[in-house]
Design a protein around this nucleic acid. Sequence first.
DNA 1: CAGGTC
DNA 2: CCTGG
Length: 316
Amino acid sequence: MEIELSKTDIIPPYNFDFALTHYNIYPWVSEEGKLIRVLQLRNGKICVAEIKSLGTLNNPKLVIRTKPSRNIQAEEVEEIKEIISWCLGLKEDYRPFYEMCEKDRVLKTAMESRYGSKGKSYPTVFEAIIGVICAQNIQFKRLYSMMYNLCTKLGERIKIAGKDYFSFPSPKNISRSPLSIIRECKVGYRDKFIKKIAEIIVKDNINLEKLKKLSTEDARKELLKFPGIGPYTANLVLAVGLRRKDVLHLDRFVREVMYTFYFDGEKVPDELLIKYANKHWCGFQSLAVDALTTNTEIWAKKLGIDFKIKSGARGE
DNA sequence: CAGGTC
DNA sequence: CCTGG
């Protein structure tokens, strides 16, 4: 089954190549020009979506091929299209953000090589929450192995052309797996949080997708109720799980980048960083931070700065 | 010993 | 608190 997405589905500019080469956290996989991932549909069905580009930056066109190809209902096709559109931000208009970058020499430089890129987000709020919890306290690249382990040990397996693919595990799967198995995924102290959150969702029958309809403030309040979710995790979930642009997460990488490029290398208190972001990147804080923390060591050279922390966006 | 949370 | 650096 092939699904085509063109002008009416994608707001240009759209840079598919960026999506293909950055932040491919399992179950996202990039293979031979195709972006692949397993999806679990509302009715529980597991399928694989393979996305490739046939268009250009200003005339984007994507084709989604779904496997297995048989027995896909019309409403399932629609659902797959919606999921992919959401994850890749196809309907997001980033032009106001680019306009803002024009006035910021650092952001302008950071965005130069990724014009038309749109942040990749998680298909479900649940996957976003677990993903961000795994992102606490680590160098970014470790996130890849944690998510890979969770999927291969606890996700659903599907074989396509002799190759195994895994879905991101459902709350139910996680909630009923022993702590020791979750621990084996090398998630460390996060194991209890991950299991606890899954248990709460199953026991209280919570539909996390409803958070997408709430205001950023209300959604944040709901997120903070879960164990293991503090201000950092809540804000990053809002950014990568709910596509909120007006949130800021401060971790060591973000702090370091802001000190270096906006405060002359001086370590200033968080309050000042927050104030700066709100003032200068108003409404686009999360997009600015995304730009600043992606391939930093590469574009920093154009500004004559030798930035020491590696970004991890490309997954090494 | 990070670093975000408890 | 875990784990990788």
